Amino acid sequence: KRLCLVCGDIASGYHYGVASCEACKAFFKRTIQGNIEYSCPATNECEITKRRRKSCQACRFMKCLKVGMLKEGVRLD
């Protein structure tokens, strides 16, 4: 089984260019469509796991980008 490159949960397929789970796919889409900017309360190096993926949105979004999710893949309509 493929794992989500962002949080390590089971991937539902390839989304925005990267093997990812439904939760991270939806999080990435919401962030881009809403043009949301997050800031990390710590040092921008929070560990993102299935259990902790909700704890820091800034680091989760940075990890989405780091593993290769493409903003261009999100439709803005």
Rank of each mutant, 00 (worst) to 15 (best):
Q33A: 10
G8E: 12
S39T: 15
C21D: 04
A26W: 10
M69S: 01
G13F: 06
Y14G: 12
R30N: 05
I36T: 06
G17W: 05
T31V: 07
F61Y: 07
E72V: 04
G68Q: 00
A11W: 12
A23H: 08
Q33Y: 11
S12T: 09
E47A: 10
V67M: 11
K54M: 13
F28N: 00
R51Y: 05
H15I: 09
E45C: 05
L70E: 14
F61C: 00
Y38D: 00
M69Q: 01
G34V: 08
K66S: 12
K71F: 06
C56T: 02
V74R: 08
K50V: 14
N35W: 06
R51N: 10
I32N: 03
V74S: 12
Y38E: 03
C59R: 01
K1A: 06
R52F: 11
I10Q: 09
S12I: 06
R2V: 07
S55W: 15
C64W: 03
A23F: 03
G73A: 13
R53N: 13
G68L: 02
I32M: 04
N44E: 12
Q57C: 08
D77V: 09
C4M: 02
E72F: 03
L3S: 11
G34A: 14
R52G: 13
I48S: 09
V18F: 04
E22T: 08
T31P: 00
K63F: 00
A58V: 01
K63T: 07
F27S: 02
C40Y: 07
E37P: 04
S39P: 14
Y16D: 12
R75T: 13
F27W: 03
T49M: 12
G8Q: 14
K50Y: 09
S55L: 15
L76E: 14
S39R: 15
M62E: 13
G34L: 10
S12Y: 06
G73Q: 13
R60D: 01
A23L: 05
D9Q: 09
H15D: 07
K1E: 09
G73R: 11
K1G: 05
H15F: 08
T43I: 10
C64L: 01
I32S: 08
G17V: 05
L3K: 07
E47K: 08
T31R: 02
I48T: 08
K54Y: 14
G13R: 02
A42D: 13
A42S: 10
C64D: 00
A42R: 11
L65H: 01
C4Q: 01
G34T: 10
C24Y: 01
K29P: 01
V74Y: 06
S12K: 12
V6K: 07
Y14D: 14
F27N: 00
S20C: 15
R53M: 14
C21N: 00
S39Q: 15
R75K: 13
G34N: 11
F28A: 06
K25Y: 15
R53W: 10
E37F: 01
H15C: 04
T49C: 00
P41C: 11
C64H: 00
V18M: 15
C59I: 03
I10H: 12
I32Y: 00
A58Q: 09
M62P: 00
T43C: 02
K50Q: 14
S12H: 13
C21G: 01
A58G: 08
A26E: 14
I48C: 06
E72C: 07
C7T: 03
R2I: 15
K1F: 02
A42W: 11
M69P: 01
V18P: 06
K25G: 15
A19L: 11
G13V: 05
F27P: 03
A11C: 08
E45Y: 04
T31Q: 04
A11S: 13
L76T: 11
S20E: 07
